[in-house]
Protein backbone atom coordinates (compact mmCIF):
# COMPACT_ATOMS: atom_id res chain seq x y z
CA UNK A 1 0.00 0.00 0.00
CA UNK A 2 0.95 3.62 -0.33
CA UNK A 3 -0.35 6.94 0.94
CA UNK A 4 -0.41 9.76 -1.58
CA UNK A 5 -1.33 13.43 -1.98
CA UNK A 6 -0.78 15.67 -4.98
CA UNK A 7 -0.67 19.35 -5.74
CA UNK A 8 0.41 21.75 -8.46
CA UNK A 9 2.80 24.66 -8.41
CA UNK A 10 3.80 27.27 -10.94
CA UNK A 11 7.23 26.57 -12.40
CA UNK A 12 8.44 30.02 -11.30
CA UNK A 13 8.03 28.93 -7.63
CA UNK A 14 9.66 25.52 -7.98
CA UNK A 15 13.09 26.79 -6.99
CA UNK A 16 11.64 28.20 -3.77
CA UNK A 17 9.88 24.90 -3.09
CA UNK A 18 13.21 23.14 -3.58
CA UNK A 19 14.83 25.41 -0.99
CA UNK A 20 11.97 24.82 1.45
CA UNK A 21 12.12 21.05 0.98
CA UNK A 22 15.88 21.05 1.37
CA UNK A 23 15.51 22.82 4.71
CA UNK A 24 12.72 20.51 5.87
CA UNK A 25 14.19 17.20 4.78
CA UNK A 26 17.87 17.72 5.51
CA UNK A 27 18.86 15.51 2.57
CA UNK A 28 20.17 16.30 -0.88
CA UNK A 29 17.64 16.42 -3.67
CA UNK A 30 17.90 13.78 -6.34
CA UNK A 31 17.49 14.35 -10.03
CA UNK A 32 14.34 12.82 -11.50
CA UNK A 33 13.88 11.75 -15.11
CA UNK A 34 11.44 8.90 -15.52
CA UNK A 35 9.96 7.54 -18.72
CA UNK A 36 6.59 6.13 -17.76
CA UNK A 37 4.85 3.66 -20.07
CA UNK A 38 1.26 2.79 -19.26
CA UNK A 39 0.17 -0.57 -20.68
CA UNK A 40 -3.30 -2.06 -20.97
CA UNK A 41 -4.30 -5.67 -21.53
CA UNK A 42 -5.72 -6.54 -24.94
CA UNK A 43 -9.49 -7.21 -25.08
CA UNK A 44 -10.55 -10.58 -23.67
CA UNK A 45 -7.26 -11.17 -21.82
CA UNK A 46 -7.76 -11.49 -18.09
CA UNK A 47 -10.81 -11.83 -15.89
CA UNK A 48 -10.90 -8.02 -15.92
CA UNK A 49 -9.15 -5.43 -18.07
CA UNK A 50 -5.86 -4.52 -16.40
CA UNK A 51 -3.24 -1.80 -16.44
CA UNK A 52 0.40 -1.87 -15.50
CA UNK A 53 3.07 0.82 -15.57
CA UNK A 54 6.63 0.27 -16.67
CA UNK A 55 8.95 2.96 -15.36
CA UNK A 56 12.36 3.56 -16.83
CA UNK A 57 14.62 5.68 -14.63
CA UNK A 58 16.78 7.61 -17.09
CA UNK A 59 19.07 9.30 -14.59
CA UNK A 60 22.67 8.22 -15.28
CA UNK A 61 24.80 6.24 -14.76
CA UNK A 62 22.49 3.33 -15.47
CA UNK A 63 18.88 3.13 -16.60
CA UNK A 64 16.80 0.98 -14.30
CA UNK A 65 13.38 -0.54 -14.87
CA UNK A 66 10.47 -0.92 -12.48
CA UNK A 67 7.05 -2.51 -12.87
CA UNK A 68 4.31 -0.77 -10.91
CA UNK A 69 0.74 -1.80 -10.30
CA UNK A 70 -1.61 0.71 -8.70
CA UNK A 71 -4.76 -0.86 -7.37
CA UNK A 72 -7.97 0.40 -5.85
CA UNK A 73 -8.01 3.08 -3.18
CA UNK A 74 -9.40 2.64 0.30
CA UNK A 75 -13.10 3.51 0.51
CA UNK A 76 -15.69 4.12 3.17
CA UNK A 77 -16.42 6.69 5.82
CA UNK A 78 -12.98 6.29 7.42
CA UNK A 79 -11.22 6.91 4.11
CA UNK A 80 -13.38 9.98 3.40
CA UNK A 81 -12.38 11.58 6.67
CA UNK A 82 -8.65 11.53 6.01
CA UNK A 83 -6.97 14.00 3.71
CA UNK A 84 -4.62 11.43 2.19
CA UNK A 85 -5.44 8.74 -0.38
CA UNK A 86 -4.52 5.22 0.70
CA UNK A 87 -4.27 2.72 -2.14
CA UNK A 88 -2.70 -0.58 -2.99
CA UNK A 89 0.55 -0.28 -4.90
CA UNK A 90 3.09 -2.95 -5.71
CA UNK A 91 6.44 -2.34 -7.34
CA UNK A 92 9.13 -4.64 -8.59
CA UNK A 93 12.49 -3.84 -10.10
CA UNK A 94 13.04 -5.74 -13.33
CA UNK A 95 15.56 -6.35 -16.08
CA UNK A 96 15.55 -4.06 -19.12
CA UNK A 97 13.57 -6.46 -21.31
CA UNK A 98 10.50 -6.26 -19.07
CA UNK A 99 8.64 -4.04 -21.56
CA UNK A 100 9.15 -6.63 -24.31
CA UNK A 101 7.93 -9.28 -21.86
CA UNK A 102 4.65 -7.48 -21.18
CA UNK A 103 4.12 -6.81 -24.89
CA UNK A 104 4.56 -10.55 -25.48
CA UNK A 105 2.04 -11.34 -22.72
CA UNK A 106 -0.64 -9.32 -24.50
CA UNK A 107 -0.26 -5.79 -23.13
CA UNK A 108 -0.31 -2.78 -25.44
CA UNK A 109 1.05 0.71 -24.93
CA UNK A 110 -1.81 3.00 -23.94
CA UNK A 111 0.21 6.17 -23.36
CA UNK A 112 3.65 7.29 -22.28
CA UNK A 113 5.03 10.35 -20.56
CA UNK A 114 8.26 11.73 -19.22
CA UNK A 115 8.58 13.14 -15.71
CA UNK A 116 11.46 15.57 -15.27
CA UNK A 117 12.30 17.24 -11.99
CA UNK A 118 13.70 16.35 -8.60
CA UNK A 119 12.86 14.23 -5.57
CA UNK A 120 13.58 14.07 -1.86
CA UNK A 121 13.50 10.80 0.07
CA UNK A 122 13.67 11.04 3.85
CA UNK A 123 12.29 9.67 7.10
CA UNK A 124 9.97 11.79 9.14
CA UNK A 125 7.56 9.57 11.05
CA UNK A 126 7.30 7.57 7.82
CA UNK A 127 9.50 6.97 4.77
CA UNK A 128 8.32 9.98 2.78
CA UNK A 129 9.12 10.80 -0.86
CA UNK A 130 8.41 14.18 -2.41
CA UNK A 131 8.66 14.53 -6.18
CA UNK A 132 8.41 17.80 -8.06
CA UNK A 133 8.21 17.27 -11.79
CA UNK A 134 6.98 18.58 -15.08
CA UNK A 135 4.94 16.08 -17.07
CA UNK A 136 5.98 15.86 -20.69
CA UNK A 137 4.49 14.08 -23.65
CA UNK A 138 6.37 12.60 -26.55
CA UNK A 139 5.58 13.79 -30.06
CA UNK A 140 7.01 10.60 -31.50
CA UNK A 141 6.98 7.12 -29.96
CA UNK A 142 9.56 6.85 -27.15
CA UNK A 143 11.26 10.11 -28.26
CA UNK A 144 12.12 11.25 -24.74
CA UNK A 145 14.71 13.75 -25.99
CA UNK A 146 12.01 15.72 -27.83
CA UNK A 147 9.36 15.68 -25.11
CA UNK A 148 7.22 18.78 -24.56
CA UNK A 149 5.40 19.82 -21.35
CA UNK A 150 1.74 18.87 -21.09
CA UNK A 151 1.01 21.86 -18.83
CA UNK A 152 3.66 24.52 -19.55
CA UNK A 153 4.41 26.70 -16.56
CA UNK A 154 2.92 24.20 -14.11
CA UNK A 155 4.53 21.31 -12.24
CA UNK A 156 3.16 18.37 -10.31
CA UNK A 157 4.10 17.75 -6.69
CA UNK A 158 3.51 14.32 -5.19
CA UNK A 159 4.07 13.25 -1.62
CA UNK A 160 4.00 9.50 -1.08
CA UNK A 161 4.89 7.02 1.63
CA UNK A 162 4.71 3.23 1.77
CA UNK A 163 2.24 1.86 4.29
CA UNK A 164 0.62 -1.36 5.44
CA UNK A 165 -2.91 -2.09 6.60
CA UNK A 166 -1.55 -2.04 10.16
CA UNK A 167 0.33 1.24 10.13
CA UNK A 168 -1.41 3.45 7.57
CA UNK A 169 -3.06 5.72 10.18
CA UNK A 170 0.37 6.66 11.57
CA UNK A 171 1.71 7.16 8.04
CA UNK A 172 -1.25 9.38 7.14
CA UNK A 173 -0.65 11.44 10.29
CA UNK A 174 3.06 11.80 9.52
CA UNK A 175 2.34 12.85 5.93
CA UNK A 176 -0.40 15.32 6.89
CA UNK A 177 1.88 16.89 9.45
CA UNK A 178 4.67 17.23 6.89
CA UNK A 179 2.36 18.65 4.22
CA UNK A 180 1.29 21.49 6.53
CA UNK A 181 4.80 22.92 6.21
CA UNK A 182 4.31 23.23 2.45
CA UNK A 183 0.94 24.99 2.76
CA UNK A 184 2.23 28.52 2.03
CA UNK A 185 3.49 27.35 -1.37
CA UNK A 186 1.00 24.71 -2.42
CA UNK A 187 -2.05 22.82 -1.39
CA UNK A 188 -1.90 19.05 -1.39
CA UNK A 189 -4.94 16.84 -1.74
CA UNK A 190 -6.03 13.39 -2.84
CA UNK A 191 -5.30 12.63 -6.52
CA UNK A 192 -8.22 13.60 -8.72
CA UNK A 193 -9.35 16.39 -6.42
CA UNK A 194 -7.62 19.42 -7.87
CA UNK A 195 -7.38 22.40 -5.56
CA UNK A 196 -5.33 24.63 -7.88
CA UNK A 197 -2.50 26.93 -6.89
CA UNK A 198 -2.52 28.81 -3.58
CA UNK A 199 -2.77 32.61 -3.54
CA UNK A 200 0.06 32.96 -1.00
CA UNK A 201 2.56 31.13 -3.23
CA UNK A 202 4.18 34.22 -4.75
CA UNK A 203 4.75 35.92 -1.40
CA UNK A 204 5.97 32.73 0.28
CA UNK A 205 8.32 32.02 -2.63
CA UNK A 206 9.71 35.56 -2.53
CA UNK A 207 10.36 35.22 1.18
CA UNK A 208 12.08 31.87 0.78
CA UNK A 209 14.26 33.13 -2.07
CA UNK A 210 15.32 36.20 -0.13
CA UNK A 211 16.53 34.34 2.97
CA UNK A 212 17.75 31.28 1.08
CA UNK A 213 15.62 28.89 3.09
CA UNK A 214 17.60 29.57 6.24
CA UNK A 215 14.51 30.08 8.35
CA UNK A 216 13.72 27.11 10.53
CA UNK A 217 10.11 26.13 10.23
Amino acid sequence: MECIVQGIIETQHVEALGILLQGLCGVQKEQLRIHELCLKSVPNLGSVSSEVKILCDLVPPETTWTVRHVGGSMRGAGADQISVLVRTMVESKASKNVLRFFYALGYKLDHELLRVGFAFHFHRGAQISVTVSSINKMLKLHATDDAVPVTPGMQLVEVTAPATSENYTEVVAAMSSFCEHLAPLLHLSKPGISTGVVPTAAAAAASLMSDGGGTTL
Binding site: V52, H69, V90, S92, A94, S95, V98, G106
Partner: peptide, 18 residues
Protein backbone atom coordinates in the same frame (compact mmCIF):
# COMPACT_ATOMS: atom_id res chain seq x y z
CA UNK B 1 12.69 -13.77 -23.29
CA UNK B 2 14.04 -14.25 -19.77
CA UNK B 3 13.22 -11.55 -17.22
CA UNK B 4 14.68 -10.99 -13.77
CA UNK B 5 12.47 -9.20 -11.25
CA UNK B 6 11.90 -8.85 -7.51
CA UNK B 7 9.79 -11.43 -5.67
CA UNK B 8 6.98 -8.85 -5.55
CA UNK B 9 6.42 -9.35 -9.30
CA UNK B 10 4.41 -12.46 -8.33
CA UNK B 11 2.08 -10.20 -6.38
CA UNK B 12 1.73 -7.90 -9.41
CA UNK B 13 0.90 -10.84 -11.69
CA UNK B 14 -1.76 -11.92 -9.22
CA UNK B 15 -3.31 -8.45 -9.10
CA UNK B 16 -3.38 -8.10 -12.90
CA UNK B 17 -5.60 -11.22 -13.11
CA UNK B 18 -4.54 -11.79 -16.71
Amino acid sequence: IVVEADLSIQNIMEKLQS
